[in-house]
Design a protein around this nucleic acid. Sequence first.
DNA 1: GGTATTTATGAAAACGTTTTCATATTATTG
DNA 2: CAATAATATGAAAACGTTTTCATAAATACC
Lengths: 344, 344
Amino acid sequence: MANPKKAQQNTILDIAEALKLSPATISRALSGHPYVKEKTKNDVLKMAAQLGYRRNNMASGLRSNKTHTIGLIVPRISMFFHAEVITTIQNGLHKYGYNLIICQSNDSLDMEKELAEILFSSRVDALIAACTLHTVDFSHFDKLLLNGTPVVFYDRVPLNEQHAAIIKGDDFRGGYIATTHLIETGCKRIAHISGPLTSNLYQDRSSGFQQAMEQHKLPVNKIWVFHQELTHTNAREAMRKMFEGEVTPDGVFTDNDTSAIAALEFAREKGINVPGDLKIIGYSNDPRTSIITPSITTIEQFPDEVGKKIVETLMDLLKSGGNNVDERIQPIIIPVQLIRRMTT
Amino acid sequence: MANPKKAQQNTILDIAEALKLSPATISRALSGHPYVKEKTKNDVLKMAAQLGYRRNNMASGLRSNKTHTIGLIVPRISMFFHAEVITTIQNGLHKYGYNLIICQSNDSLDMEKELAEILFSSRVDALIAACTLHTVDFSHFDKLLLNGTPVVFYDRVPLNEQHAAIIKGDDFRGGYIATTHLIETGCKRIAHISGPLTSNLYQDRSSGFQQAMEQHKLPVNKIWVFHQELTHTNAREAMRKMFEGEVTPDGVFTDNDTSAIAALEFAREKGINVPGDLKIIGYSNDPRTSIITPSITTIEQFPDEVGKKIVETLMDLLKSGGNNVDERIQPIIIPVQLIRRMTT
DNA sequence: GGTATTTATGAAAACGTTTTCATATTATTG
DNA sequence: CAATAATATGAAAACGTTTTCATAAATACC
């Protein structure tokens, strides 16, 4: 068992002393510098293992200005989409020898700002961020960018960012195909439970919704369009309001699956036949949508693809060392797909 | 917008120069040292803000040997229980000025070992770990402990660790009350779909199961007891095997909710009446269990409490600076609770 | 009013690496 | 075989803080 008396850690100097070599050579041997004799290298590696040596990342990072660490800011890791993206990113980065510091903003703008500062303080080599719903001004990321630190935004992204990479789902198309699907399955009176328009996500999905409605010459009933935080209770409340009216919707498109679940539960309780009298479509393909009865039609966002693209982009940016930053980086759009289930 | 030309960062020396003070004073002013004039402190703070100064954590950490960063190793962040625990930990630590590096082992022992090394390299002030199912030997954490770095294990924990703190749910009692509940609702032929016995979790839940059965003088049918990775397909396969036989179970206790869901789906497909002919109880109170029809009875583990206790314990350990390590730290057991739903 | 104490600051060392520069050794070339 | 190039190593500076030690200024005490 471990002896918890504070033990001083072995450093590069201990290896140097043991082998009668200079610390410089040890450093080179450990980091695979070409100009170091094969034998020396082996000796060093062996001695390092023997002494249980482990590089001190702070010393290394301070001197070399590289931390091999990448920061990630995300609203909530418990959201299915994000959990998947994060896992893909982490596994991807690991292959390149990078570590990930995962931080949650809890969808609070203040927290997001603070986390950006903290990650800057930690001198992460790059930053990945999925912003808050309320993030309209993205200037708290400027310090990183100014410093030449690559920043990749995904999901909730800035609209006019010159220097950061942007990766997002095709939200316009998502909104469009969801709405079109409702129309094609016979809906005439379609409601839209959407998120706040401060976020590009809901702007785009709303535009998609609008365009599909227009194209099929269907009127958009304004009191059936909600822009609100996409919580279970908010969605329920929206449903309650709509079904108080004389004319009620025969289709509901919600911008996330939690709201779709709430809508379905409301319908079940009120004895509204789904999909007979009311069709429901959600967004994100949360595992819960396939488990509930009836299972919910939704939009798949391919978190895996998003994650992969983020890693790929990041590696490019890190390799180019902030050289190609002058050319405006084009946003990358990941396609979406309709997953048809029993609610439509 | 940000100018991406590599800009050198402002340091403590820039502030010192601007104010004609020494770097030492700046450092003291910024870290709230008592012996610094109020006016000086204000000047420094103002100038720091003006220059957009942010402490370099690597330099700071290297010198002071404190990183204000805590490492977390977890099998998967997407597991509901862990996501909740992590969120509580992160929010809790944030209040004390600590940051969290979240790492996933993907339930791979090799990865867990590597992550422990990496986090040691980063000289985290402490480590929190929920181990792999296959972690039997915990010696890869010894280097941290040897170095005086506090380690807190939770969920999947070592059994004979002298120096680390241990926080776990009451798995024995969980197994016991789940089984007892099945018995009390009339089950006579109870199956147990459990995880591998390498992990304390499933050892304890199995013991609870055994004891409840014995106490009620019910026989344990060995071919109805499974120890396997708790995946959807494994659980399905177990169900298939059991329901091939002549005598079939009238109650199934599964050690996680994914398996319970699989069992329920199997029953639905085969037209087995739940809870009439078969009762099912899961473990963890995953949100999916309350959404599925019929909703699944399960065991609540109070991830929030676990998270809070972890933070509390950690802060104690960090305050005491590894002084009270000689007294064996007692494991902390968090109570569990039966959540009765429609499958029993 | 002199001594002791507290408060406030600076100079310089220290943390553990990496890297530049210099130099020594070995290999290659004509 | 001399001259050049490539390989291999070491000395010392550097990264940006914190902290120890020293000292100066202000305050308290008898």
